[in-house]
Design a protein around this nucleic acid. Sequence first.
DNA 1: TTCTTATAGATGCGATTGCATTCATGTGTC
DNA 2: GACACATGAATGCAATCGCATCTATAAGAA
Lengths: 143, 143
Amino acid sequence: MKTCPETTVRAWVNLVRVEQKLLADVEAELKAAGCPSLAWYDALLELSRAPGGRMRPVDLERAMLLPQYSTSRLVDRLVKAGLAIRQVCPIDGRGQFIEISGEGRRLQKRLWPFYAEAIQRHLGARLSREEIARLGSLLGKLV
Amino acid sequence: MKTCPETTVRAWVNLVRVEQKLLADVEAELKAAGCPSLAWYDALLELSRAPGGRMRPVDLERAMLLPQYSTSRLVDRLVKAGLAIRQVCPIDGRGQFIEISGEGRRLQKRLWPFYAEAIQRHLGARLSREEIARLGSLLGKLV
DNA sequence: TTCTTATAGATGCGATTGCATTCATGTGTC
DNA sequence: GACACATGAATGCAATCGCATCTATAAGAA
């Protein structure tokens, strides 16, 4: 197909396949260890890194590249689980602040070792250092 | 974290983020053009390439790296849409053959240009030829 | 002010997913 | 054959997703 060389198709197919498989494997491993979903972890990490431990849903949405309704519901669940707290936003009456709770921070920290180990086993251990670095950098250009 | 170097985490994060964004973008583009989901396309492609245009659900499942129930339901929809035909499997009484229909083949062929163009625009056009090739090959080692 | 348009966020509803289980057939052992 | 166990496939149910829409506030124009 002249609009799309074979190498591009190969990269695409591999990208999709690899990501889905890795994500499913890591997720399954975490679930088996009694951990909540990766999305929760990501959200908690974003919140914990934000100044004051809080973000507006819009910003969380952009940071996580999620659709708006998805963020809205994720936040719902975090709040319901006591991992985050909803606050009114003094700057913008339409908005709010989501602040990570102490429990949220603790969970995030407790989760990291599991997460890291899963990533290392499924990704890190299967390529050389140089390959990992190159992969990360190539993908970085696409973010 | 000593079990997981920073470069590995970077590769992981980029991999997940890039794939999700690209997939969502391409999928949205196809949907806007009235095309069915990518999963349908992939399944039709697998079937069309298989000898006799047919595969056992188990094999389709392995080829697409999907969970079993997912394949089962995908096949359901394809059959319901007239794009594939369920056949009894003479070799194994538990199994079946799924054969792509004429309409299925036509749809697959009709879809490809849209698909290719979207891949080219979102992935191919954003890296050099060499980079694409390297990306594809690095990811290939992880399949 | 009033009207229009843009943005933040929530939500109803139908489609899809994940999990666990079920059913049916195949395989191996005795 | 009779049994236990493995494998192919479907499905009930709850959770989640995607889409479209809705509410409320903000920002700007007339």
